[in-house]
Nucleic acid binder design. Structure first.
Lengths: 216, 216
DNA sequence: AGCCAGATCAACCCTTCGATTGATTCCCGG
DNA sequence: CCGGGAATCAATCGAAGGGTTGATCTGGCT
């Protein structure tokens, strides 16, 4: 890590937000935005390109929502597999427990909300560059203090049922499609409702989508 | 209206986004950010303050989401009542039909997505300052019914019902929430199913989401 | 071997949904 | 002024969804 200036790669699909992050980060002088990307693919390419000329980014600042393609979480995972030494800092509008957990387990070194002040953002980047995990107290408490912490994971079969649900299939149609009985479908559904903390199929689909358990 | 430079009031609860909007808007020279606000109340006060010294804003650029308090839509309505001559341009991450309709009927003179380019944003501000309604073709088509569209447009009430549906509410809960009878909810649902070409509520939500009729 | 979780099925009962038909009010536009 | 769409409500009926309990079978872990 260079001591003089930290090179940053910005990943966000909104030009306005990129401009804002750049303005905030560069305002102190110690940080420098080396490249910008608006998709996961562009981000990956940018890291490769920068490293190719010996100017690999010291921190990647990544929006959690990247429009159509892979999310910031997925991009972070990919980046972690190919470039495990590059710290990723996730910025997001929302600070839900599941989002923060997903970010951390995807290998992100930090999670900031977009309403963070300029100073907080710059400090967080510096921390991430130094290899520290950065979680604002407010979020850390919510994630760690929640105690409930571990939400039960859905089984593969349950996810499969969930995907059929999202298509608006009836229990009978799901049963026919998966070559099982309606009784079994009902059992799975009851398990799903319990695990998602939900009362009916429509809500289950909404929650599943929000948690990225199914595509949509 | 001054001819030289357009004075802009920025309203957004995220410092980073404000910095981005400011950077983009001021990059061309013709536009100048006269003040920033992070809440509806601050926005209102800022307009009063600027007008008090004869420097009333030519355009208000307002985020549709303003964190805790009143939304950008509500702020636009308030502003329209007290300062009807000030054009408001809404910027949002999402371009759902209901959001756009709400913005326009609240008196906004335009609706832009945050993934708009810098040029689009500057042009839209200029248009709004001149008193023109600004709606990107993509959104206009979605809201107005899509020209080639064989698809019938949903009424405001139907979209409202659809949003409740997406939350997994039962007919009874929707009825209670909207102060109507279950019979009415059922009637609306049948109309929605017909218009979306769908057979049940879960599928309706999926299709509505795919067509950006509701958020998600 | 013993245990446990996931997947499978069944029977029961009650609630909700969805289709249909028909009616009223309101408001907008031709 | 009249037609038509939107919104409101009612009544009915069969289909589907959802809660509960209990059971069997498999495979992996200890």
């Amino acid at each position: 890590m260079s001591d003089s200036r930290l090179r940053i790669l910005l990943v966000d699909d909104h030009p306005v937000v990129r401009a804002g992050l750049r303005a905030v980060l560069e305002s102190a002088g110690r940080l420098q935005v080396a490249a910008e990307a608006s998709t996961a693919a562009e981000a990956h390419a940018a890291v490769d390109r920068l490293q190719g000329r010996g100017e690999g980014p010291d921190v990647v600042v990544m929006d959690i929502e990247l429009g159509q393609g892979p999310s910031g979480i997925e991009a972070t995972e990919q980046l972690g597999r190919t470039h495990p030494q590059v710290p990723v800092l996730i910025v997001s509008t929302y600070g839900t427990v599941s989002d923060v957990q997903a970010a951390v387990s995807a290998g992100a070194l930090g999670y900031l909300l977009k309403d963070a002040s300029a100073q907080e953002l710059r400090d967080a980047v510096a921390q991430a560059a130094a290899g520290s995990l950065v979680l604002p107290a407010q979020l850390a408490r919510r994630v760690l203090g929640g105690g409930a912490g571990t939400e039960p994971a859905l089984s593969l079969r349950e996810i499969e049922i969930l995907e059929e649900l999202a298509l608006g299939r009836t229990n009978q149609q799901i049963a026919a499609g998966l070559f099982i009985s309606q009784a079994t479908v009902k059992t799975h559904l009851n398990h799903i409702f319990g695990k998602l903390g939900v009362g009916n199929r429509t809500e289950a689909v909404t929650v599943a989508r929000a948690r990225h358990l199914i595509r949509g």
